[in-house]
Design a protein around this nucleic acid. Structure first.
Lengths: 228, 228
DNA sequence: ATAATGGTTAAATAATCGTTAACTTATTAG
DNA sequence: CTAATAAGTTAACGATTATTTAACCATTAT
């Protein structure tokens, strides 16, 4: 996930702090929302579903602790990440904060770089791309085995089963020339017999979709997947 | 997940600290492992796969920072949670710590209750039952698990149970192609036997409600949830 | 009880994919 | 240069696979 896809809501009654934190997070590319009390924060959260809420503990109307509890109480938004802001040295209030369901606790005075680091540490796991075991990245394109697509210039190209399997086999030989016989044995199986033009037709269709240079012919020998 | 199922590895060269932290975490029910330097820690991590590692920054043989980098470098254990321990006031070493991939940073002197609170805050999300996100937001629409409803262009579309479950399964595979067999096993269950056209009919009804492009057919392979 | 709803089935229809055949174009050997 | 061989192209066929439709029970609701 990109930073620009991540929304952070800042909640503090002091406009200066809002401005200061917003500036620092904005510089990292995050989308930033602001609210000046817990009540307004809750409305914004329900509406915009931010990924992270940074709450000042001390606020009029509805303080940070109370806001945090409200967030955790509502199943729709309960999994929102929450960071508390508080004055230094109030160790006991930290405990209360975590018990209310905070994910982190940052003490004032705030040092921009430290602040941003903590935010990033908390968001890091959000950004992780779900593990994809089946993606092959080549020079010109990416093959996604599990989705049956090839991505070229940010374009999704879908191949049909036979094309995909043939391509996959050629790619798996990383650049080596493979004879038609080997291709037949590996893609079709030793016992299946098909005409000799069958491969050509599939190769042609792959070339049509991925570009003429994707597969190179070595006349009299076989084919190879293009490399550099 | 229960506390007793969660393993925490403590790494510090001072036996007293190890003892002190271990006692406090043990009281909460966590399983605790101990190592007196980064090198030994790495071996233990590979062997026991703890959920959280608490690393003292200052250590002989292999310091915390280096250990952290090693953990993040190894894909098998890279997702282990990491907390750094350091002396108070070194704000800038915090930044280095987070950049090395830490998830939290605790400064000495350590106050037991605060320490435990931070650990719990970090582990809280680990304990959550995975399937409790009742709302899934996709590109084109939103799925509300709790109400069996899909929202598309501000329109509430209601699917019946089977349609909903099939959709949910497809969505949960995020874009991967799933064979009919897998769909049967996961949506209907291994022992239930229904005709082969049953899936098609449900797919058809989902497409009718959510648009033809919501589910894509990969002929001969299976279906996949569309992702633009 | 009757009606409505949901899940499944069967059968008809449609689309697609893999293959083939016939033909054209390259490449190589004699 | 010509013949022979190998690969490329095209369009069409047919088998397979998917879609659609409507009807049928079994549940659940009225």
């Amino acid at each position: 996930m990109e930073n620009s896809e991540i929304t952070i809501l800042l909640v503090d009654d002091e406009p200066d702090i809002l401005e200061f934190l917003g500036y620092n997070l904005g510089r990292e590319g995050y989308k930033v929302l602001k609210a000046k009390n817990g009540q307004k924060a809750l409305n914004l959260i329900k509406q915009h579903r931010p990924h992270l809420v940074i709450l000042d503990v001390m606020m009029p109307v509805m303080d940070g602790m109370e806001t945090c509890l409200e967030i955790r109480k509502n199943p729709d938004i309960a999994d929102t990440l929450i960071i508390f802001l508080t004055a230094r040295g109030e160790d006991y209030s930290q405990i209360a904060g975590f018990e209310a369901g905070a994910d982190d606790y940052i003490t004032k005075p705030i040092i921009p770089k430290v602040f941003v680091s903590r935010v990033q540490a908390l968001l890091r796991r959000l950004k992780e791309v779900p593990k994809n075991t089946s993606i092959i990245t080549l020079k010109g394109f990416t093959i996604d085995k599990s989705r049956y697509i090839v991505i070229k210039d940010d374009q999704e190209i879908s191949l049909v089963r036979m094309e995909f399997e043939l391509l996959l086999f050629l790619v798996s030989q990383n650049g080596k020339v493979v004879s038609r016989d080997k291709i037949f044995d590996n893609v079709w199986g030793e016992d299946v017999i098909v005409g000799d033009r069958t491969i050509d037709v599939h190769i042609r269709r792959i070339r049509e979709k991925l570009g003429i240079s994707s597969i190179k012919t070595v006349k009299g020998i076989g084919y190879k997947f293009w490399e550099g």
